[in-house]
Design a protein around this nucleic acid. Structure first.
Lengths: 195, 195
DNA sequence: TGATAAAACTAATACCATTAGTTAATATAA
DNA sequence: TTATATTAACTAATGGTATTAGTTTTATCA
């Protein structure tokens, strides 16, 4: 059928290089110029591998979402209930800490509605739904809970990264307390009755 | 002492113009070129008002934080307890919806450790602490709770903006459920005993 | 071996921030 | 009121950026 591409730079290799730049210098430093320099080619040559800077950002976003999913799924192995939610959450936050640039790139896709981006993100949503099923939430309540968990995890990660938490107070302890509070609130049935 | 500046463009006017560009076209479109064009001067002239693009970003961040604080403080008037927390939270999220570019700029200061930026942000933290005092949290617990609330609000706002919530599910309902769950969990004393 | 297609390249363009140096106008001081 | 100092605009020039067009090299396949 279609002839194999000539032996050149592998697209995965290129995206990984972009991820390294993002983690090391920040996602804004991922330019066609810096990326080309890192892998030893000229900027225009990159257009053979993706559609300009927007194309690179999309591929990097999907790459990051996939990597994030992997560490979350791995953390979910062998645990259940609240313990599983916390393990998955800590994996999420630790990924953002270890790969600040790649994590930031996960939300920097030029078009969030893009099918490929959506499909990658859906896996994380599905995993979150499964892990929260221990709380036996009814119907839409499970979806609200997923939004809450994701809001906490992204908000916490982003604020930690951008220097939003300035107090001298243990960050891991904060995360644990926040998660436990949210999960306890999600778990109780009569929450809506009170004052 | 120091002579008054000649009648020229007011810095507040310039920053407001930058905010309009941010809200209309996205914060990435706030360039010295686009801003100069909007206010009818040449790009280099802007250097008389702030120190290049980083200087503009810092001023825009502080401007946004101040505006966000205003709507939050206004929402806190005449309410107390859980009602106050929810009112302030909704004001936060609504500000991010109404001013997506300005909101995004609040976290885009070139140096988050900058004294002026910190001072602006501290007012929001203080307000959050005061509003959460209804829960009579002991010592550090109040600070963990503030971090949690801020994580939820920023995470929710950012994900809503970046298209992170794709399900057809009412967003305001999600926010309310998330907040009530978190606050219920924060409120109960024996949370740490369970499973 | 020869044809094809991929992937590199050079050259050129347009837009961006930034710096240097200049000019005009205003406010302050005598 | 006049002279001076200061502010805020300007033009011109530089270097970095993405991007397009057109060319060349090279690997793969028939």
């Amino acid at each position: 059928m279609s002839p194999r591409p000539k032996i050149g730079l592998d697209i995965s290799f290129i995206i990984e290089a972009a991820g390294e730049i993002a983690d090391q210098y920040g996602v804004q430093e991922v330019t066609l110029a810096s990326l080309a320099k890192k892998i030893g080619i000229r900027p225009p040559s990159l257009y053979n591998h993706f559609d300009g800077l927007p194309g690179l950002r999309k591929k990097l976003a999907i790459y990051g979402i996939d990597k994030l999913y992997e560490v979350m799924a791995d953390a979910a192995i062998g645990v259940s209930g609240t313990e599983a939610v916390i393990a998955v959450s800590q994996a999420y936050v630790n990924f953002a800490r270890k790969h600040p640039g790649i994590y930031e790139a996960t939300l920097l896709a030029p078009d969030p509605e893009d099918v490929d981006v959506q499909r990658a993100g859906a896996k994380i949503v599905d995993l979150s739904v499964r892990v929260l099923q221990a709380y036996h939430l009814e119907g839409e309540h499970a979806l609200h809970a997923v939004r809450g968990l994701r809001s906490i995890l992204h908000g916490f990660s982003a604020l930690e990264q951008k220097g939003g938490f300035k107090m001298a107070l243990d960050l891991n302890e904060s995360l644990l307390i926040i998660l436990k509070a949210f999960l306890a609130g999600i778990g109780q049935r009569d929450r809506l009755m009170e004052g």
